[in-house]
Nucleic acid binder design. Structure first.
Length: 298
DNA sequence: AGCCAGGTGTACA
DNA sequence: TGTACACATGGC
């Protein structure tokens, strides 16, 4: 059910737009979308054109309103695909909920936030570089760096008196010099990693399509060939971008804090301990991770 | 003021 | 294979 001016995208059972909103709203410095109450406004790049979408939820559907109307079928399909990946709509969560119900760590968290899915980052370049930006710095500063990065190198579109931003294009970032990013307070290493990743994407040394053909181990190894991408980043990208249910960033400090709280440990768990613990979640480790992150908000 | 942060690469046993 | 350490800079 769609028209020129909106797309209606059916949502599965056990989907909560509100839970996604909490995650999307976790930083007031986010520049890649704006939240107005129950509405999310975002600028997309669809076949090199700006497309502004206003997203809201209705019973059993997400409505994507297109204020400028008139998109052709191909564009509509691409927007729909993006939203499916953004909100992880293609997943049947039944087995996860059955498993979580009997899991001492997950049972409370999952029942409290039921309907939450992974909030995805469909673009591979964005997912990789956002992960690298966030390495070894606190999330507040990570968002500061991302905002500077986007506002310096991304394109914007003004709507209703507000600026909406696209994530920078990998071709432009590939042509930068380390000094350009150091001015934004990137460390030398981080600047090298981001530029290097941009070059790998431009040269198609790594592509989302090829990664999606691989199994978990192959995918992880391929990602880790990129300089600056270690185990944590590889799993983070497999979780947020490639929507791999087995992905689990064991070294993640947010997961460590969450587990410390829920298991009432007197200190942070070690990465090895967390890695071992995660194995009991099997092919649902990514969802365990996401719910653990969610449990630290609000 | 000093520890910590959504880690990674490198050196070395 | 496993551990130690530099990196660099802001947040709190």
């Amino acid at each position: 059910m769609s028209s020129d001016h909106y797309l209606s995208i059916p949502t599965p059972t056990d989907f909560s737009f509100k839970e996604c909103l909490v995650y999307l709203n976790r930083s007031s410095q986010e520049v890649l979308h704006k939240a107005e109450g129950e509405l999310i406004i975002k600028l997309l790049n669809v076949n090199q054109s700006f497309v502004l979408i206003k997203i809201r939820s209705k019973e059993n559907a997400i409505i994507a309103e297109l204020p400028f109307g008139k998109v052709n079928k191909e564009t509509g399909d691409l927007i729909t695909k993006y939203i499916h990946e953004w909100f992880d709509l293609n997943k049947d969560m039944t087995d996860f909920y059955a498993m979580a119900q009997n899991d001492p760590v997950l049972t409370n968290i999952v029942s409290r936030h039921r309907g939450l899915r992974i909030v995805g980052i469909p673009d591979l370049f964005e997912a990789l570089t956002w992960a690298v930006i966030g390495q070894q710095i606190n999330l507040t500063f990570a968002y500061t760096l991302k905002k500077r990065f986007v506002e310096h190198f991304g394109k914007s579109f003004e709507y209703d008196g507000q600026l909406y931003w696209l994530y920078p294009d990998c071709h432009q970032i590939a042509s930068l010099d380390v000094s350009h990013l150091k001015k934004l307070q990137f460390t030398t290493r981080k600047a090298e990693y981001v530029i290097g990743i941009a070059k790998s994407i431009v040269s198609r040394a790594i592509t989302k399509e090829a990664l999606l053909q691989m199994d978990y181990e192959g995918m992880k190894n391929s990602l880790m060939k990129l300089r600056g991408v270690g185990a944590w980043t590889a799993d983070y990208v497999m979780l947020r971008c490639l929507l791999q249910p087995q992905a689990f960033p064991s070294a993640d400090i947010g997961i460590h804090h969450a587990l410390r709280k829920h298991l009432e440990l007197d200190q942070k768990p070690t990465t090895n301990y967390v890695e071992e613990l995660s194995k009991k979640w099997g092919d649902w480790r990514a969802y365990a991770a996401f719910y653990l992150w969610r449990s630290q908000l609000e």
